[in-house]
Design a protein around this nucleic acid. Structure first.
Length: 485
RNA sequence: CGGGGUGUGGCGCAGCCUGGUAGCGCGCCUGGUUUGGGACCAGGAGGCCGGCGGUUCAAAUCCGCCCGCCCCGACCA
């Protein structure tokens, strides 16, 4: 229905994957680079990342963590200390073998994540229970060699945050894992307007070297699942292999309990895929680099002057306006292009509201506010805009969240038999809530058979006796299956 | 790594079969007219046709080898 306006990108329904790539490129979020599998994040895309990054950074600091930095390289011997960890990451590690014109005595891994090197260093910082908890966070880049890459979603290098904490007790560490996950839930839901389901990963999906992994999972508009953040209970695994010990209150030497949790630039891709439509991006106001773009319309110099005068008065009125994500971010598009061109230009870029001001509007003392998500138009008095916009933006943000929630509800299915499971997955896709016995073999078979994986054992789903899809053994509750990114 | 496709101005493509030294659309630059859903006219810039070798008087075009990229099959934030 909106197709008639769109010339630059493929239809979302017909070719979601092509649509996604076209949006990333045409909206100038990202570009390919001379290095295969590694992307360039352009100003508009980086601004979106900065917004979610800053919001998460505030949460991390508010909850007592400090930002730190650790090296890009991890000596091979360190990476190999934790057995499961090496095994899990080895295929994805890029190695530096030469430097200074010579072959290195010991290879250096380009960090795929920093657990190993952090554990090695902090063992010199932790002597006593008084040194705990140790709450650190890194904003950095990591490299994981990927075979098939997609802009933002899976690239050989990505930007992220990795928190690393050490605690005296298992309970404290468990609380920390939950704290990290709550940060991701809140950024996803409150900032990106993407509803998530919280839960625990199956054994097969657990981080290499972790005791358990919790995650938040979101549904994209092609009904596939995307992991929006993971929080790991490392137990004493890394502490033990690195030899970190502290003297506790009871005068016994113990290994501290560790956690780590991460959130990456993949969430820029999630934001695109959770809200976008056939005209391009649809950005939640909290992350939109421009929340409102003014398109001036005029026929002649006289009209132009009238419109320019009205816009100048808006500048004064908008100066102090606050939104949920800080001062109102708005701009005027004075380029020498036709209004229609500008409408399409800013719709492609997902700007929440467009404000059209023409001579007729100025004469009537109003402007036409057009909402990106459904192109709903509303004429508002010029002198009411400053007061009205924050409310409009907040309502729009809430509306996008609700729309995504409704979409997820409409595409979540409860199935009880394997036949139904396959049928629904092929017909509709989406989230499938189904009984599972907990066995690795059954999980593996379903994946090999259908391409779906267990995304989570959700925290919020009720206990419900059932029988496993595959082997018919008893199941205590439904788990979330989906095809995933 | 196995199967399929493709490489020609910034982007998308035609030309190749039937050899004769390159064309279209978009974009870009200049000037003018325009501006309420992707404006129009005129002029202009821009290409060792993926690379190397061969056939030929002559190769984007025919032949051989190599390289890159895209899609599909085993892993992942």
């Amino acid at each position: 229905m909106t197709m008639e306006y769109v010339k630059e990108i493929p239809s979302k329904a017909e070719a979601f994957s092509d649509w996604y790539t076209a949006v990333c490129l045409r909206a100038e979020l990202a570009d390919y680079s001379p290095v295969r599998g590694m992307m360039v994040i352009r100003p508009y895309g980086y601004a979106i990342w900065e917004s979610m990054r800053d919001e998460l950074d505030r949460y991390i600091k508010r909850t007592g963590h400090s930002n730190v930095y650790f090296p890009l390289f991890v000596p091979r011997s360190l990476l190999e200390k934790e057995a499961e960890h090496v095994e899990g990451f080895n295929p994805q590690v890029a190695w530096v073998t030469h430097a200074g014109g010579e072959e290195l005595a010991e290879w250096l891994a380009i960090r795929p994540t920093s657990e190993a090197i952090i554990a090695e260093v902090v063992k010199g910082w932790i002597q006593s229970y008084r040194d705990l908890p140790l709450l650190m966070n890194l904003w950095n880049n990591v490299v994981r060699w990927e075979l098939r890459t997609r802009l933002f979603l899976r690239t050989a290098e990505f930007l992220w945050q990795e928190a690393h904490t050490f605690h005296a007790t298992e309970q404290e560490a468990a609380d920390e894992v939950a704290l990290g996950l709550e940060g991701y839930r809140s950024v996803a839901e409150d900032w990106l307007a993407i509803p998530v389901i919280r839960g625990r990963k199956s054994r097969a999906e657990t981080f290499p070297g972790a005791v358990y992994t919790d995650a938040v999972e979101a549904m994209m508009r092609d009904r596939r699942a995307l992991q929006a953040g993971t929080s790991h209970m490392l137990g004493q695994n890394f502490a033990r292999s690195a030899g970190i010990e502290f003297l506790d209150r009871d005068n016994l030497r113990k290994n501290p309990y560790g956690t780590s949790w991460g959130f990456s630039t993949r969430m820029v891709g999630a934001t695109i895929m959770a809200h976008g439509d056939d005209a391009g991006l649809v950005l939640p106001p909290n992350v939109a680099p421009h929340q409102v773009v003014v398109v001036p319309i005029f026929r002649d110099d006289e009209g132009r002057a009238a419109v320019a005068g009205a816009i100048e008065r808006l500048e004064g009125a908008f100066a102090g306006v606050q939104t949920a994500s800080g001062p109102l971010r708005w701009k005027v598009d004075w380029r020498e292009e036709s209004p229609g061109f500008k409408y399409n230009h800013w719709e492609l870029r997902g700007v929440p509201y467009r404000l059209e001001i023409g001579p007729r509007d100025v004469a009537a003392g109003q402007a036409v506010l057009v909402r990106r998500s459904d192109r709903a138009k509303e004429a508002l008095p010029l002198d009411a805009l400053a007061a009205e916009l924050p409310g409009h933006l907040a309502a729009y943000q809430a509306g996008l969240f609700q729309r995504a929630l409704d979409f997820r509800a409409a595409n979540t299915h409860h199935v009880d038999t394997y036949a139904d499971f396959k049928h629904v997955l092929d017909e509709d896709g989406g989230f499938l809530m189904a009984p599972w016995c907990g066995g690795d073999e059954c999980e593996k078979e379903i994946n090999a058979d259908t391409g779906a994986t267990i995304r989570l054992v959700p925290f919020d789903s009720p206990d419900e006796a059932g029988t496993c899809l595959v082997d018919g053994r008893p199941s205590e509750r439904r788990v979330l299956f989906a095809r995933a990114y």
